[in-house]
Amino acid sequence: MSLTVNTVATLRDAAYALNDRARYLGGGTLLMRAVNYGDQAFDTIVRSRETDRTIRSEGQGIRIGAGATMTDLLASRDAEALHPVARVIGGPAVRNMATVGGNLFAAPPYGDLATAFLALDATVQMADGQSMPMESFLSARARSRGLVAAVMVPRTGPQEFRFAKVTRIKPKGVSMMSIAARLPGAGGSLGDVRLAFGTMGPMPLRAKAAEQALRGRSLTEDGIREALRVCCDGLQPGTDELASEWYRREVAPVHLKRLLLGRGR
C-alpha cells in the first residue's frame, strides 16, 4: 500500500484534512497496527503538530484533551476517578502512547475507557465545535469522519463510580468484558444509575434494563437481583478467541454482582 503522511500545524487543519481515505494519527496504537497489517481502507495518515493533552476542571466536570494518554490520566489528580480504568489498560508502553481520543474508536476487546465514559455520561467535543453525548457518538463512530477534540466528564465521587475489567490472563490481559457503573446514592437508595458494558457488543453499550431495575434499590443481594436477571438485555455479545457469546451471557451477571456488591476476586 502506498501511504501518504499529511502533517498539518493545528487540530483544526487536521479536521479539514480528514476524508474517507484518511485517518488521524493519535497515539498510533490503533492506526499503526492497521498500517502494519496492510489495511487498504485508507491511504493517508493525517497528523497534527498541535496536540491537546491537557486535563483540567471545567464547570461541573473535567475536560480531557483527546491527545491525553493513559499515563497523562494517571498523573492527573482531576482524573482520579478514571485511574482504576487507565491503570488496567496495556503495559507502560501502551499507556505512554494510547490516547483518550483513540480509545473512543477502539473495537472490542479494547475500549475500556470508552466504556467508563459511557457510564459516566461523558460528552464528546469535536474539533468543529460540535458536542454530542458519548452514547450517540459511540453508536455512530463507524461513520464518524470528524476529529475528536476533547471529552467532558461530569464530576463523580470515587464512591459513585465502579469499574471492573474481566480478563482470562493474570495479572493483565485484554477484556473478556468490562463493566462500568455510576451509582449515585450507593450508600442507600440508588439514584440515576448508569451501567455500561464493554466487549459485549460492537461498541460499549448501556444495560438500560438493569439500570432501571436498580433505581430506588439498594446494593444488597435482594436489591440487585432483578438487575442481574436482565443485565444482558440489549447487549450484543459476540464469540471470539476469548469467549463465546453463551459464556459471556452466563458470566455477565456474576461479574456484575461482584462489582455491585464490592466483592472483587
Binding site: L25, G28, M32, N96
Partner: peptide, 13 residues
C-alpha cells in the same frame, strides 16, 4: 526515557 512500542510508532514522530 519513556517506554514505547517502536512497531506502533510512526517514524516521522
Amino acid at each position: 526515557g519513556e517506554p514505547h512500542l517502536s512497531c506502533l510508532t510512526l517514524a516521522e514522530t
